[in-house]
Design a protein around this nucleic acid. Structure first.
Lengths: 150, 150
DNA sequence: GGTGAAACGTAGGCCGT
DNA sequence: ACGGCCTACGTTTCACC
């Protein structure tokens, strides 16, 4: 990853909020010619500073009417146990994020489902069935006053 | 928001994983002509199904070397107390997400900082200073085996 | 880093279904 | 209403300075 100067920082900030801006408009915003801007963007992509470009979809477009964070405790803390659990959630489309955290439990999941009934089904039939899982604590999201993903 | 048919669903899936694909290439992928595809994308933007397009930056490009979830309990559950807290975190760039959750505490934050020292400073000098805050519990993220944002 | 020009993509009018 | 065709216009991209 090459060094990131102030102009790169401005490019990243603009692309973070509008990934589909034209290269010409981006060039105008950062004060460079289009070709120099394009070369910088390509370098940032190659270096991995820009990992990709994504459309942000509304919850309705994703089919999500219910979101929860779930704290998951495991039976054993072995590598095999963790890997088994991670494989289990990797295949579940409802699990949007799986974080390995410090504290009294091992994992924090973000789960999205169509509605409460769909979540209940996922909770008991998918998560509850994984042999590594010892405890599940659900925190229903009532709102997100701040969310950088949106 | 108009109704979303199978072709719209395919368009959304493609744009979700590559927001900068050209309209022509997108048309090829969904099996429509470029003009019909463009009209659908514009309709999806207007209807709010597509909320925007964002570049995904690496943690290094964001200056993040330390991530934690923080469970925050408030002193009072009044509307004014919640709004005061939400205003407090809205201005903190380290707080990337703030979710209002059910359970024993009121909020779950995702916090990103340069390193542990920067986090400690944020924890005691920013969060700890908000008058509405009663309790703070930090869960350090050691890894994210699954993260749809990446 | 900037310039210029060829290649490429966009976007909207128009017509058929 | 919705898709395909056409085309003027704008943008990207690259060799060269």
């Amino acid at each position: 990853m090459d060094h990131i100067d102030p102009i790169d920082t401005r490019i990243l900030r603009v692309l973070q909020s509008d990934a589909r801006i034209s290269n010409q408009a981006l060039a105008g915003r950062v004060g460079l010619s289009p070709s120099a801007t394009l070369r910088r963007v390509q370098a940032l992509e190659r270096s991995g500073a820009i990992q990709g470009y994504r459309a942000v979809l509304s919850p309705a477009a994703r089919g999500t009417g219910f979101t929860a964070y779930v704290a998951v405790g495991l039976n054993d803390h072995t590598k095999a146990g963790q890997e088994g659990f991670e494989r289990g959630v990797a295949g579940a489309p409802q699990v949007r994020e799986c974080h390995n955290i410090t504290g009294t439990v091992e994992y924090l999941l973000r789960v999205e489902a169509a509605d409460l009934a769909a979540y209940k089904h996922f909770h008991t039939e998918v998560l509850g069935v994984l042999p590594q899982v010892r405890s599940l604590q659900t925190y229903v999201v009532m709102g997100s006053p701040k969310d950088d993903r949106a």
